[in-house]
């Protein structure tokens, strides 16, 4: 607990920005790549990077990664129940 107070991983330089995308954006994403949510990369709902985002399983988060050549590159992950196992 003490650790969490001192150190917020979300502000760390190596942790990319995670943000929840709206349902419309989600639909658009699925349409763009012609996929269902099962084909997206996954992220466990108890992942530390999702703290404070208020996401539930089935939501899609956008992760904005930094790239030397492209500047900012979006990546998408679907939130998956991570409580058990």
């Amino acid at each position: 607990m003490k650790m969490a107070e001192q150190f917020n991983i979300k502000t760390h330089v190596l942790v990319p920005v995670h943000k929840k995308i709206s349902n419309e954006e989600k639909e658009e994403l699925f349409k763009k790549y012609n996929i269902s949510f099962k084909q997206l990369p996954k992220i466990l709902s108890n992942d530390s990077a999702l703290e404070g985002l208020e996401v539930v399983s089935g939501d899609v988060v956008q992760i904005i990664r930094k790239s030397i050549d492209l500047g900012e590159v979006p990546y998408y992950r679907v939130v998956v129940n991570g409580k058990r196992i």
Partner: peptide, 14 residues
């Protein structure tokens, strides 16, 4: 299976 691993090849498309 058609699961996406990267959205752009190498995450920089190079």
């Amino acid at each position: 299976k058609g699961n996406i691993i990267q959205f752009i090849y190498g995450e920089d498309g190079l």
